[in-house]
Amino acid sequence: DDGRLVLTPFLKEDSSVKSKVFDSVELGDFNQALRCLVGAYVMGYDHIDIKSREHISHDVRKAVRTFTDTVIGPEIVDDSLHRLSITDLSDFRKLTFDTSVRRMHLIINAMMESLEIAILKNDLKIAEEVMDRDRELNRLNWLVARQYNKLMKDPMMTETLETTKERGLNLMLISRIQERIGDHIDRIAYNLIELEKPLSKKRAADLMRALKLSHEAYEMSMKSLFNRNMALANNAMDHVNAAVSACDDLTESLAVERGGDTLKFAYMIESTLRIARYSKDISESVINILVDMN
């Protein structure tokens, strides 16, 4: 728009493919190997080779299969005694930043709605289902982090991912915040399952009120992103105050109580509070995006 011309070098079709080679012995045990594989994925490597002079250990093979089951895109394309090869088969043209962030939004809404039913009906099976959905948020968050790292290293990715570097940064932050919100929904469901006695009707109703306020703040913040509405982002930040106040009231009601269930309920209140405050963080990132657009 300002008349500048940006020149980028000619890139051959396969020149942007990044490869990483690991020695099987250096990968160590299952946990260390899995961390290294996720790290390579997040940093934007498209092809991963694991080699060994002898046979590849059981721990490393298990880590590879767990890795490909956990993240989006990579698949095992070569499996032999001395070598394992993993290649990313995903298409970024179909998995843009916006697609991933919107998908996370839908999952969180479904988790929140199911959690509310689980609390009201003390349905522990539904609570378990809520916890299962959290894994999908982790997968999408890693994908967005991977996309951002590729965006930073390859200027041509701005067109493929349909975003700018600045907007990509804020969407990555929103993705990370959504993953944290999912963790706290998971934590509430976990503590609901761990209670020795079901919540009383009053306590369930009080928690539901605080949860709904936090959920509303989150929903407003995400709608402000999708609708590019700065006024709604500011309203969402104000709405967080109501959720914080409701959580504070619940915390004060526990001041004279003791016992294991009291502690678990306190954890549930704390996670509800975190969801509200994370929603405020999303609104701040949305405002950053909209200010930059204008």
Rank of each mutant, 00 (worst) to 15 (best):
residue 2 D to G: 12
residue 7 L to R: 11
residue 10 F to R: 11
residue 14 D to C: 14
residue 15 S to H: 12
residue 19 S to Q: 12
residue 20 K to Y: 09
residue 27 L to Y: 02
residue 34 L to N: 03
residue 47 H to D: 10
residue 52 S to R: 00
residue 52 S to K: 02
residue 62 K to Q: 06
residue 67 F to S: 01
residue 67 F to T: 02
residue 68 T to I: 08
residue 73 G to W: 07
residue 73 G to L: 06
residue 74 P to L: 01
residue 78 D to K: 03
residue 95 L to A: 08
residue 96 T to Q: 07
residue 100 S to N: 12
residue 103 R to F: 04
residue 108 I to P: 02
residue 110 A to C: 14
residue 110 A to Y: 07
residue 121 K to W: 06
residue 125 K to V: 15
residue 133 R to C: 07
residue 138 N to I: 10
residue 140 L to S: 14
residue 140 L to D: 13
residue 142 W to A: 12
residue 144 V to I: 14
residue 150 K to H: 13
residue 156 M to E: 11
residue 163 T to R: 02
residue 164 T to F: 14
residue 165 K to Q: 11
residue 168 G to Q: 13
residue 169 L to W: 10
residue 177 I to Q: 12
residue 178 Q to I: 04
residue 180 R to A: 05
residue 185 I to N: 04
residue 192 L to D: 09
residue 193 I to G: 03
residue 196 E to D: 15
residue 198 P to E: 09
residue 200 S to Q: 04
residue 201 K to D: 13
residue 209 R to K: 12
residue 217 A to W: 09
residue 225 L to V: 01
residue 231 A to V: 05
residue 244 V to D: 12
residue 250 L to R: 02
residue 250 L to K: 02
residue 252 E to Y: 05
residue 257 E to W: 05
residue 260 G to C: 03
residue 261 D to R: 03
residue 263 L to H: 04
residue 273 L to F: 09
residue 275 I to D: 09
residue 279 S to A: 13
residue 281 D to V: 05
residue 283 S to Y: 04
residue 285 S to L: 02
residue 288 N to F: 03
